[in-house]
Amino acid sequence: MKRYFSFILLFAGAALSLYISGCDDDPEKEDVPELVTKIKLTFTPVTGGSPVVVTAVDPDGEGPQDLTPDGSINLRENTTYQLSIELFNDLLNPGEEGYDLTEEIEEEADEHQFFFGFSSGVFSSPSGTGNIAPSTGSINYLDEDSNGRPLGLLTEWTTAGIQSGKSFRVVLKHQPGIKSATSTSADGETDVDVTFALSITGS
């Protein structure tokens, strides 16, 4: 038995140190600048008047609940609007660090671009159905990146005549190293892809 004793003692000692060496480190909370749960579209008439604002919110981020728009975009006929887009992480409180994510896109304008898709005939300018592949229409971009390529946080739209039941789709693409004069919405990774209902009403 004596022969085993040193073995048992060694084992017990090692076992004890094993069990007390487990440290209970609580994880640190991460900032999550890539988590976008809300998009806000503001259509401001260039001739003045109250802006049209729509938002779409995803209540649980990666969770199974859907992103839902809070209503349709109701624009007036034959009016020119400037559209500005803002992105948020709505799981945080307004004012908290990381709540407003629009700036992040601005800072990396050279690898991001917004693309737009809409029902035929809803706008007199731009005409067509937008520039989301396979469509190849033009968009009135009002901003650009350092290489002079469009970004799309600010765009201009002139509505056509009265119509309803139309749609308006916004796609933000992340194109690191591949954003070019010829890159399209089929290139890169999707950061945002949201579709709103659109109607044009009488003035």
Binding site: T37, G61, E62, P64, D66, L87, D191, V192, D193
Partner: peptide, 8 residues
């Protein structure tokens, strides 16, 4: 199922 978040 299928869910929609901001990326699609």
């Amino acid at each position: 199922g299928v869910t929609r978040n901001i990326r699609g």
